[in-house]
Write a protein that binds this DNA or RNA. Structure first.
Lengths: 221, 221
DNA sequence: GTATAATGTGACTAAGCAGTCATGTGACCG
DNA sequence: CGGTCACATGACTGCTTAGTCACATTATAC
């Protein structure tokens, strides 16, 4: 937790620090991100940083929570609670993609902690955050079963892992592949992201939904 | 490329260096892995390391190629070239899981480079390695279409990304989740991996194949 | 105006790192 | 024996880092 001093700061200064820190932690993995760099670019003294935060991890955790919170709020706002399972998944995908394009730094800071083999120090964040997401998805799938839109003979936990990997990996891989860029290039160059029209996004998502709904098999089940 | 000196080394010494280095690079992300640590544990002088390898990246690249090569060979040996698409995917999954359990260090060194947001210096390895895998999977899917086992109306590249994410993320997530351990714990404690009987592995894979074949939809297509 | 508390500061510490290099060792050859 | 070559060594350089602390500045209270 940041110290009280941080919250006593004038909002514009506080925001400047947050922005610079987000940029640094988005650009480099945790252990390579440099506090010296952040304070220099934010125009404050090294010592001041330690008046605001306990240590490097404290600062990072604060930014991570911020990113997670904003992403969740963003997606939550876009999901129709009455929608059926497949519609809800589709809306989640669309909202997730939009969020990533609109808030590349936030989404990158969040993603940086989500590497299964990442820094020791972030492992707790990773574990907690993933299990929250999996629990949420599993619940959604269970509701889908109750509503009759999802088959009853699937392992709901496995299905949750599966949807999770689509949301987290497959979709991003495909988008980057079809844009012909790497994720680093895209983050470094926001205009690239704008090649991505709403139509294109919906097109890709409907393809993914097709796979999700019916799988790859040519045979009818 | 390692220098000639490295290959002139007595095999046991060479192997000891490889083993210690694999352990280090498996345990820590690239930038945190320490050459000083490696040489100390391998019982050689710092300078000697630089008689064998150009620099840290050279050493890492060598280990990465080693891991990639072994993994490919292992999986290749287990795939029946005449099998249909779904069988081939199933065999790939099984072989991949077995390899991970039997060679945790190799698979971890390989996986460490496969993080999309990892170290700048490894990005080239990541890009190349992923595109090779995606091309391979896409080819497989195209053959599946020709054989009539895969629907013709799927975007093959997207399907490749999708299978890739299942092989890389979803499966591992589910396994770890169902064992109730993290990947770090599993790597640190090989006996845990042995909770994983052949039967259990096949059970999980057949569940995944069910999803892959027919998707989540309760409706018949 | 003065006292007290809160906040700002940057030189400094201690540690770790990749990579270097002058020197040493030992094996083989003539 | 002397000479040459491949290899071994670890103290050392130069750099970067997270975190500290004695002191300076500013804001608040009376």
């Amino acid at each position: 937790m940041p110290k009280q001093t941080f919250f006593n700061l004038p909002p514009d200064k506080r925001q400047r620090i947050i922005n610079v820190a987000l940029e640094e932690f988005a650009a480099r993995p945790y252990s390579k991100a440099s506090l010296s760099n952040i304070v220099a670019r934010a125009g404050i003294a090294k010592g001041s940083m330690y008046q605001y935060f306990e240590d490097k991890k404290d600062l990072y955790t604060y930014l991570f929570d911020l990113a997670a919170q904003e992403k969740l709020a963003y997606i939550g706002k876009m999901i129709d609670p009455a929608a059926d399972f497949f519609t809800a998944v589709e809306q989640t995908m669309l909202a997730g993609m939009r969020f990533n394009l609109e808030h590349p730094r936030l989404s990158q800071v969040y993603a940086n902690a989500m590497e299964p083999l990442g820094e020791e120090i972030l492992h707790e964040l990773y574990i907690k955050s993933k299990s929250v997401a999996l629990d949420f998805l599993e619940q959604m799938i269970r509701r889908g079963q109750q509503q009759g839109s999802v088959r009853l003979d699937v392992d709901t936990r496995l299905a949750a892992c599966w949807v999770y990997s689509i949301l987290g990996t497959a979709l991003l891989d495909y988008i980057l592949d079809s844009l012909g860029v790497t994720i680093k290039e895209m983050l470094a160059d926001p205009p690239v992201a704008r090649k991505f029209t709403e139509d294109r996004m919906r097109g890709i998502i409907s393809e993914v939904m097709k796979l999700l709904r019916s799988g790859l098999s040519a045979k009818e089940r």
